[in-house]
Simulated assay, not measured.
Amino acid sequence: MKCLNNSAEDSLDFLNNTELNEKQTELLLALLEHEIQHHGQLIRYFYGNELIFPKSWNERYTV
């Protein structure tokens, strides 16, 4: 969790202090879309295998 938090903080710091050009913005949005697709895959995996979602997912997402 510490590594994830550090990564998130570093990413937000970069985004808040950097003006992205059009190509960089397109790449950032493509990466975000890719990560969202992985999240959807995990949700389908849980539903398909009748697994119980972690409590944090139920509190944060509609699952």
Results as ranks from 00 to 15, higher is better:
residue 25 T to M: 11
residue 4 L to S: 10
residue 25 T to V: 15
residue 29 L to A: 15
residue 6 N to E: 13
residue 21 N to D: 14
residue 62 T to Q: 11
residue 49 N to Q: 04
residue 56 S to D: 10
residue 49 N to P: 00
residue 1 M to V: 07
residue 14 F to M: 05
residue 19 E to A: 03
residue 47 Y to S: 14
residue 15 L to F: 09
residue 37 Q to S: 06
residue 11 S to H: 09
residue 52 I to N: 12
residue 61 Y to K: 04
residue 24 Q to G: 02
residue 38 H to P: 04
residue 28 L to M: 10
residue 42 L to A: 08
residue 46 F to A: 07
residue 36 I to Y: 14
residue 54 P to G: 04
residue 33 E to Q: 13
residue 5 N to C: 12
residue 31 L to C: 04
residue 52 I to R: 14
residue 32 L to M: 06
residue 12 L to F: 06
residue 59 E to Q: 06
residue 50 E to A: 07
residue 10 D to A: 12
residue 15 L to S: 15
residue 19 E to F: 02
residue 23 K to E: 10
residue 49 N to M: 00
residue 34 H to V: 07
residue 18 T to W: 00
residue 39 H to P: 03
residue 9 E to M: 06
residue 8 A to W: 08
residue 33 E to L: 08
residue 49 N to E: 07
residue 3 C to Y: 06
residue 36 I to G: 07
residue 44 R to E: 14
residue 40 G to H: 07
residue 42 L to T: 09
residue 19 E to I: 00
residue 58 N to T: 08
residue 36 I to F: 14
residue 9 E to W: 11
residue 39 H to L: 15
residue 58 N to E: 12
residue 60 R to L: 12
residue 50 E to I: 02
residue 31 L to R: 08
residue 2 K to Q: 05
residue 26 E to D: 10
residue 53 F to V: 03
residue 8 A to S: 09
residue 56 S to R: 13
residue 36 I to E: 15
residue 41 Q to M: 08
residue 15 L to R: 06
residue 62 T to F: 10
residue 51 L to T: 03
residue 47 Y to V: 09
residue 62 T to L: 11
residue 56 S to H: 08
residue 53 F to K: 02
residue 4 L to I: 09
residue 17 N to S: 02
residue 29 L to F: 13
residue 6 N to P: 00
residue 59 E to V: 03
residue 21 N to E: 07
residue 24 Q to W: 01
residue 22 E to A: 15
residue 63 V to R: 05
residue 30 A to K: 15
residue 58 N to R: 12
residue 12 L to Y: 04
residue 22 E to F: 07
residue 42 L to S: 03
residue 47 Y to F: 14
residue 51 L to S: 04
residue 58 N to A: 03
residue 20 L to G: 00
residue 29 L to C: 07
residue 9 E to Y: 11
residue 40 G to P: 02
residue 61 Y to I: 02
residue 37 Q to R: 08
residue 17 N to F: 01
residue 38 H to I: 12
residue 45 Y to W: 07
residue 22 E to W: 07
residue 62 T to E: 14
residue 59 E to C: 01
residue 59 E to Y: 03
residue 7 S to H: 13
residue 38 H to Q: 11
residue 5 N to M: 14
residue 16 N to C: 02
residue 10 D to S: 05
residue 35 E to G: 09
residue 61 Y to Q: 05
residue 42 L to D: 12
residue 52 I to P: 01
residue 21 N to C: 04
residue 20 L to M: 13
residue 12 L to K: 03
residue 63 V to W: 05
residue 51 L to P: 00
residue 59 E to T: 05
residue 10 D to G: 02
residue 17 N to L: 01
residue 11 S to G: 05
residue 39 H to E: 12
residue 32 L to E: 11
residue 9 E to D: 11
residue 60 R to A: 12
residue 17 N to Q: 01
residue 45 Y to G: 01
residue 42 L to F: 08
residue 30 A to F: 08
residue 38 H to C: 06
residue 16 N to T: 04
residue 2 K to E: 11
residue 62 T to R: 10
residue 28 L to C: 10
residue 37 Q to E: 15
residue 35 E to V: 12
residue 35 E to R: 15
residue 3 C to W: 08
residue 44 R to L: 10
residue 45 Y to D: 10
residue 12 L to R: 06
residue 9 E to I: 14
residue 32 L to Q: 14
residue 57 W to I: 02
residue 19 E to M: 04
residue 3 C to M: 14
residue 24 Q to V: 02
residue 33 E to A: 10
residue 55 K to N: 11
residue 51 L to M: 14
residue 17 N to A: 00
residue 34 H to R: 15
